[in-house]
């Protein structure tokens, strides 16, 4: 089989560029295997993050041929032998070295999310939830925090100044999972519009496209949140709920 040329970004905050390495392909290899091979034999100090190598931990996020992907889930047989494959760090975040970026933005945003506030338990001290109550949220709980959606989201990728006022897709589904929790009692509506900046999202769905867990981030998370925000503007919904004797929002 012909060799692959891997064009890997090497550098640190002071600068850097792409460097070519040639690698012999092997059956079933993924991009992360190739990076490890380069690390073990050609460049001991090539920096990259990884853990599980099975698409479960979300550590090895990178941009392969310009597309945000998990390196451990990108098989080399996606490419033609002889191809040149570029591997770059996720570009939305500050570089630490080579393929490793500083993703602390995401951990800062995580801290701001108003946590769950449960209603009181049943008389026996436990809670009851039906499978149909949680199916929808379990989808969001599949998130492995690889931050590929955060990386690809053009709101912060192309507009650095928006990082201050925008939480990004990962935290919209976090917020959706809390807001749709059958036992939650907290009103997050003003947080979602004012602090998380959902209005900045123009639902162009790149987050959904890159999600390695195939979570319908836009359709099932962000759009329902936008719709929930629109409820307060809809007199028909208001009337219907009055008629049914419900409060328009949980207290």
């Amino acid at each position: 089989m012909a060799q692959f040329t891997m064009r890997v970004f090497r550098g640190d905050p002071s600068g850097g560029g792409f460097q070519d390495y040639t690698v012999e392909p092997e059956e079933g290899m993924v991009v992360l295997d190739v990076i490890h091979r380069i690390q073990a034999t050609q460049a001991n100090d090539l920096a990259c993050r990884w853990n599980c190598k099975a698409g479960k931990c979300g550590s090895c996020s990178a941009e392969v041929n310009g597309k945000p992907r998990l390196m451990c889930m990108t098989r080399m047989d996606l490419f033609q032998p002889g191809d040149t494959i570029t591997v770059a760090p996720i570009r939305t975040f500050p570089l630490i070295r080579d393929l490793v970026t500083d993703v602390s933005y995401n951990y800062e945003k995580a801290k701001q999310v108003p946590p769950l506030r449960l209603k009181p338990p049943e008389p026996d001290g436990t809670y009851r939830m039906m499978q149909e109550d949680i199916d929808r949220i379990q989808e969001f709980h599949k998130c492995i925090e690889c931050f590929l959606c955060q990386d690809v989201c053009h709101v912060i990728r192309d507009h650095e100044d928006k990082k201050r006022v925008f939480s990004g897709p990962r935290f919209f589904i976090k917020l959706a999972s809390l807001d749709m929790h059958p036992l939650d009692t907290r009103d997050r509506s003003s947080f979602i519009t004012e602090n998380a900046g959902i209005g900045l999202c123009n639902i162009t769905k790149c987050c959904t496209e890159v999600c390695p867990e195939h979570i319908h981030i836009t359709d099932n998370g962000i759009i329902p949140l936008k719709e929930r925000a629109a409820d307060s503007l809809d007199p028909i919904v208001w009337l219907l709920r009055r008629f049914r004797g419900q409060k328009s929002r949980p207290a």
Binding site: D12, Q39, A43, N44, D45, L46, A47, C48, I96, R97, D98, V100
Partner: peptide
């Protein structure tokens, strides 16, 4: 080889 910054 290399420096101390994120050197696996």
């Amino acid at each position: 080889d290399g420096g101390r910054t994120y050197n696996p």
